[in-house]
Design a protein around this nucleic acid. Structure first.
Lengths: 204, 204
DNA sequence: ACCTGAACACCGTTCAAGT
DNA sequence: ACCTGAACACCGTTCAAGT
């Protein structure tokens, strides 16, 4: 399965994000990796922003898949929730610049297609939260609002971590510990040694 | 009280952040606002990054002051907590690019002085959390870890909001609603119509 | 339909020079 | 001590031209 030039450009941009962050993704560097000139990308994307948007769309789809996989692989809804959180955290830690592109970059031009991909991944996560509520593992409040709290907490913890804000002498635990504490508190202080299924991510 | 050239450069950078975001803060635009050449800033800062660091330090100090003010103005610890959250949220909404600079920009060069300013504001917030725990308004777990959860949630909600990620058809409530729901849930589902002292921010 | 090379406007930074 | 103007390397983007 060989990649088209367009797909190669997206892959090259993803690798450059991992290697050197946003600033490393210049059209000249992307072109060089693929073996085309620095303005060949304009034949496939309207500009640098649209290329980054394509990276984001691809990763949103992979995250949705990871959430769906957790949902299928775990009989316990709480295990699916913790496993999904772990998958998102792993993605953030291992692909900092890409995580920020998807969840934190205000410049990212989001067309309808990208918005849909982002919403689909959110829906998959939200569905797991709803399952937890039905099993009594999470409080019985409005599902979307509750998902908002959980999503915000995990995102905030990841973002503070990968932006270096948590590394100060703040004594903050790992991102996993923060997420785990939230889940425990939402279960009414029922601290457990619970361990979710180890997440697998099909992201290069 | 006239500003020194150095202070004028910091103020100009802050206003440019508010008006046009990070990309609008070019040394040429900063210099023009102050009435100096585009490389005059190098006489006061080691470069663009250090100038932005000075903006961040100033704002961290103002936020610490806002938290301390909330702590003094409210007899109820929970009112101080909700007021501090509201102050942080208001700063984020009204100064999006500056908020991101302080709490989310991985490029921001953080020397020891800036780290200390950031830590001091975190400590002020953490002290309010501790007061809430003593009054039974928050669960009796490790204070720093609990502050980490609360801080992550508020930061995550603000960041998703100002990066446009919450505006999709996700049905998410306002940032205030997300923070308020967290506080309610941490009090064991005790939903209240609680209203904190309106925060005031001494930020231009 | 897809790509190239030159060119343009813009940027951060450096440096020699001025007061 | 503080500032200026020219210059450099780099960038995204545009455009005329090639196949």
């Amino acid at each position: 399965m060989i990649e088209t030039t367009k797909q190669q450009l997206v892959s090259a941009a993803s690798r450059l994000l991992d290697a050197g962050g946003q600033e490393a993704v210049t059209l000249r560097a992307v072109g060089e990796r693929v073996g085309v000139s620095h303005n060949a990308p304009y034949r496939h994307f309207s500009g640098r922003g649209a290329l980054l948007g394509a990276v984001a769309k691809r990763d949103f789809n992979m995250l949705k898949q990871a959430f769906d996989d957790q949902n299928s692989a775990n009989d316990s809804p709480e295990a699916a929730l913790r496993g999904s959180a772990a998958a998102l955290i792993a993605y953030g830690i291992e692909h900092k610049a890409r995580y920020r592109l998807l969840f934190s970059d205000p410049q990212l031009p989001s067309d309808a297609i990208l918005k849909e991909a982002a919403f689909d991944s959110f829906k998959a996560f939200s569905g797991i939260v709803a399952r937890c509520q039905q099993h009594g593992a999470l409080p019985d409040v409005d599902t979307v609002s509750l998902t908002g709290v959980i999503y915000a907490t995990i995102h905030g913890a990841i973002d503070l971590e990968i932006s270096g804000r948590a590394s100060g002498a703040k004594g903050l635990g790992s991102v996993e510990a923060t997420a785990s504490l939230l889940f425990d508190l939402l279960r009414n202080h029922g601290a457990t040694g619970y361990s979710a299924t180890r997440p697998t991510l099909a992201i290069e």
